[in-house]
Design a binder for these strands. Sequence first.
DNA 1: CGCCTTGACATTGTCAACAATCATTTCGAC
DNA 2: GTCGAAATGATTGTTGACAATGTCAAGGCG
Lengths: 219, 219
Amino acid sequence: MNARSDGKDVTARLREAIVSGHFQPSERLIEVELAGLLATNRTNVRTALAQLEQEGLVVREANRGARVRLVSHEDAIEITQVRGALEAFVAGLAAARARPQDHRRLRALVEAMREAVEAGDLIAYSKINGSLHAEILRIAQHRTAAKLLANLNSQVVRFQYRSILLPGRSRRSLAEHEEIVAAICAADVEAAERNMGAHLRAAAEALRQVIEASKTAIV
Amino acid sequence: MNARSDGKDVTARLREAIVSGHFQPSERLIEVELAGLLATNRTNVRTALAQLEQEGLVVREANRGARVRLVSHEDAIEITQVRGALEAFVAGLAAARARPQDHRRLRALVEAMREAVEAGDLIAYSKINGSLHAEILRIAQHRTAAKLLANLNSQVVRFQYRSILLPGRSRRSLAEHEEIVAAICAADVEAAERNMGAHLRAAAEALRQVIEASKTAIV
DNA sequence: CGCCTTGACATTGTCAACAATCATTTCGAC
DNA sequence: GTCGAAATGATTGTTGACAATGTCAAGGCG
């Protein structure tokens, strides 16, 4: 009957709800509530929670239920570092695989980034940033890396917007992306790896600064 | 009552059973059978299967049950590549973090590897190889990378032994490990990354060769 | 006043029965 | 003999009830 509401994968919908911020970190995830919310039964919620735990979005304690995983600052940095290693590899692949058509798309995205920065629209910048990384991932055609990166990203989306707020970070980030795209368009595998690696090291460093700043600010 | 048999995490035991080869790739995993085998109920088996699917060890089709994931040759190469990116990063970390005590352990492991190669004992070699990589991972102290690598490894253990059988591969592999350990002991981060990266590119290449050989051999 | 025990409530964990689906076999028509 | 349709069996999917556990508040005791 209501194949519509229940047909979609419960895990996917719960994941989306967590990633989109519908639930706060450390918020309790009560099985019957979720079942009601997602128009399904406890069993499905239960397996969804088990999967999302494996995925690092949810934490479960025996007999004490599930919570949205609170990603600590250290975790966020670790995740960004690992992303860096993977994305550098992926950028290298993209440099080897990209066709002229791909080059055009990448350049268009960088151009849009530049406009966003000049307009001071950091939210738009953040979005395009995501699109650019996604495009590079698409060009690389590497399922294993793609899955892992999607996973890692879902764990740190909450942190994404923060580091770009650092004064001067957006301009430097733009410059880094320009170099990455230039390397890919030049089919220079090693430069692409190097530039992407440098970019995510810089991103991790920016994240660390923001975190340190917030720590001292709170105390 | 039988807290012993059921107490342990069902997912962990099923994972172990799959990784250790107790079940063959593509072998059907029937819920009631597993429940009997693991001395538990269908519910627990069900959630275990859901988690292992997320982990990439199991494939499930709606209404058609679960099977051990058959990792294709392409998958195996992809996984080895991604491992390479991660392990290179981890080796760099290890180079930065390793203490003299760690250096001793690493050198001892390489020494054991050398002996295994000279004795022609490739099974022992394979084991020590695993220990060495695990030791480097321990030194690096990076939970996120450690978890991902554990995951990836469990997907390709079945392929591990094959590539080392290539004529001359074991000696070269030994040399590569010596260089990696030398770089870590010299606290040379970049050399450690570079050497580990090269090592796993070589491993991926060896794997590719073995696969090509087996393809033509079968046809 | 603080601390421990007790009990009620909320939530998760386990189980068995039933429904739905898929694979296989049987049977009849041509 | 071959094709297709219906019956059969095996397996997964779903549901509800119950047990086990944890949480919290109230009350008694030192």
